[in-house]
Amino acid sequence: MKYISHLDLMSVFQRAFRRAAVKIAYSQGFSPHPKLSMAHPLSVGISSISEYMEIDMEEGIPEKEIISRLNEVLPLGIRIMECHKILEKKKSLPALVAYGSYEVSFNRNGIQEHQLINRISDFLSKDRIIVTKKQVKSSSVKEIDIRPLIDEFKMIHSDNEAFKIMATVKTGSNGNLNPELLIQSFIKESKLEIKQNSIKIIRIELYFLKDHKQVPLNQLYKV
C-alpha cells in the first residue's frame, strides 16, 4: 500500500465504502465529492500503522459493523482498527494534527552504534539545519531551516543488521516536515554511509496538542 499516492488512496477508500455498502455523504453542488478526509497525507514509499480518517455518513450504521464490512472489502495492507462516532464536532482532523512520529530503519552498513549516536547529537546541536527544497510550481529552489520542525530524533534500536531511529516532527498546517527530507538531510550532514535503498519509514502516530502536550489522535473521540 505504501506505493500508492494520497489521492489514489482516497479513491481506494471511496470504492471500498461503495463495495461495503457503507454510504458516505456527498457534497452538494457543481461536482459532488464524497465527504471523507484523512488527517494527514502519507507520502509515497512510507508505511503507516496509524492513519485517521473522518467521514460523513449518509445513514447510521453501528461502528462494529462498519469495521467488519470495510475490512472484508479492503485490499490487503489496509485494515480498519477502530471506529468512533463523532458526537460533538470539534475541529476537523487535518486542522488538529500537529505532530507525527516516524520509525526510520536502515542497514548498519558498517556503521558503529556510538558513531550514529554521536552524529545524531551533532546534528541536533546545530542552531539551524538548512535544506533546499524544489518548489513544485515555480521549479525554483527554496531554503528552509528544518531544525525548529524536529521535536525528537533518536536511535531506539540497534542489532547486527539494522538501526532504528524514532523521529517526531511537526506535521500539519502549522509547520510540516517530511520525514524523507529529514533523513536525507541527516545523511548529508552526518556523512554516514547509509544505504539509500535499505531505508524504511513507518508512520507510528499522529498527535494533536492539548495544553501544549502531544496527545495521540486516537484519544480525541474516546470517551
Binding site: Y3, I4, D8, R15, A16, R19, V44, G45, V73, P75, L76, G77, N197, S198
Partner: peptide, 18 residues
C-alpha cells in the same frame, strides 16, 4: 522492494488489486 521506490508509479508492478 529495493528497487520499486526508484521507479515512477511502483503500483504498476505490485499486483494485489481488488
Amino acid at each position: 522492494e529495493k528497487y520499486l521506490p526508484q521507479v515512477e508509479k511502483p503500483a504498476r508492478y505490485i499486483g494485489g488489486e481488488i
